[in-house]
Amino acid sequence: MMSSLIAIIITSAVFNNVILGQFLGVCAFLGVSKAISTAWGMGLAVIFVMVLANAITFFVQLLLVKAGVAYLQTLAFILVIAALVQMVEIMLKKTSPGLYQALGIYLPLITTNCAVLGIALLAIKKNYGFVESIVYSFATAAGFTLAIVIFAGIREQMRFSKIPDAMQGFPIALITTGIMALAFMGFAGFKLPF
């Protein structure tokens, strides 16, 4: 049990990173990675929302299957996630205005962050139990945070380099991400000892 959980953590955080391997949440990744501090904020927000979303959708799926309407999965999940993000936004506004200021416009974007819905759907597809699903979502979101913080660090340094006009903005960001993905692919060569 324990070793399979550790395998889930390492695989989903590093080997099969949510951005660099699965292409989920790329919009948020490119949008909120101009400074390390906001990247941290976004990463933490995603961890929070993703774990909560997976915990709730696990039971929503049980209900849907019991009611015999499993085909409503997409519809039900996206509504649950949208409501959840709204709640997190209200809570954040009350409890930590500083973080709210920094993430303000990006929090609603988490609703359309395909990583949150995608991981909820994947956890169901992989037939994970409740604990596995929580661990899986946490590790994936931690992988998101890892990637976005590293990327923000690179981007901060990139301000000092001379980039060709046509490459500025998205093109150079995408190519940098590609090279990061290449580096992360190196991990795939490791074999877990269990």
């Binding site: 046509a166 998205f170 093109p171 190519i175 993905a181």
Partner: peptide, 25 residues
């Protein structure tokens, strides 16, 4: 094979976007 894998996706899209930016300019 790199082009079929994840890095190829990012790099191709990045280069195509850069090309289009260049044409636009």
């Amino acid at each position: 094979i790199l082009m079929s894998l994840a890095p190829g996706a990012f790099i191709t899209l990045g280069l195509v976007l850069a090309g289009i930016n260049h044409l636009q300019r």
